[in-house]
């Protein structure tokens, strides 16, 4: 059984159909790269998966549980969405760290609030702190975890944002162009972290413009164009022998850069 099953997702903004029926599945431990030009619907798709946008049609199933089915109103209950979206993590293009908290506090805030809300009596703050410190060590920021976001470089901030998503143990970790807001010399350190996560078999969906990275890291590639999945398959096939003319054109535009 796939960990994620996306069926016929459609989304229209002000009469513009941004997603015109998206279908794909993802197996546990796989990393999926989503490529395509700006405006092809990649970001909207990620936002639908994270319940930041509600699709007009379609269904999202994780581990066999139907999280959202637009034809079944009982799955659209606003109060359950919060629990459902925790199946997914999302790393934003612009990091969106909370500026008033240190890197460590950014990472610990959500799990602390969840524990408080669920009235966990023996909430072990120290264990959480240790787990967070472990993640900081993994992403190479152990000695910076008490810094505030404005004291960190863009690449460091994005790595903290990844840590903040990881500590909630999402089933599927989504990245929305994680390096697009970074200076070129800072993209490497972020991609390295994502590559390492992929090697640890983290299930991931990465919307990216880094073609080389998509080819090397992903187990599966989706090329989107005009709100549909134009082509999907394993990276070698899609990048080296694209079946669709549109994919070929897109890739050749990128290789010229």
């Amino acid at each position: 059984m796939p960990i994620l099953e996306v069926r016929n997702i459609r989304k229209t903004f002000d009469r513009t159909e941004v997603l015109k029926g998206i279908d794909f599945t993802l197996e546990k431990g796989e990393s999926l790269s989503v490529i395509g030009s700006s405006g092809s619907g990649k970001t909207t798709l990620l936002r639908c998966l994270n319940f930041l946008e509600r699709p007009d049609a379609g269904s999202i199933t994780v581990n066999g549980e139907v999280l959202l089915d637009c034809s079944d109103p009982s799955t659209l209950n606003e109060s359950q969405i919060r629990r459902k979206r925790l199946h997914f993590g999302l790393v934003f293009q612009s990091f969106n760290l909370f500026p008033q908290y240190t890197a460590l506090q950014n990472v610990m805030l959500a799990p602390e609030l969840h524990a408080k809300e669920e009235h966990v009596h023996n909430f072990d703050r120290e264990a959480l702190r240790e787990e967070a410190a472990g993640i900081f060590a993994d992403i190479g920021l152990y000695d910076r975890m008490n810094n505030y976001p404005h004291q960190l470089s863009g690449g460091q901030q994005q790595r903290v944002a990844i840590a903040r998503a990881l500590i909630l143990h999402p089933d599927i970790l989504c990245f929305d162009e994680p390096t697009s807001a970074l200076d070129p010399e800072l993209t490497g350190e972020v991609l390295k972290v994502i590559r390492k996560l992929s090697e640890q078999n983290t299930t991931m969906i990465i919307v990216t413009h880094e073609m080389e990275f998509a080819r090397d890291v992903a187990d599966k590639v989706i090329f989107m164009d005009g709100g549909i999945i134009c082509e999907q398959g394993n990276p070698r096939d899609v990048f080296n022998n694209p079946r669709e003319e549109r994919t070929r054109q897109f890739l050749s535009r990128y290789s010229q850069k």
């Binding site: 319940f51 993590g89 969106n96 760290l97 909370f98 008033q100 805030l109």
Partner: peptide
């Protein structure tokens, strides 16, 4: 920025938690 609110949402916070723990101090500043 709306991204602050959305970051709170994807971390599973309630609207109230986001206001109290994320937005409020930035607004006060």
């Amino acid at each position: 920025p709306v991204g602050q609110y959305e970051a709170g949402l994807v971390l599973g916070m309630t609207k109230g938690q986001i206001f109290r723990h994320v937005t409020l101090l930035q607004m006060i500043k």
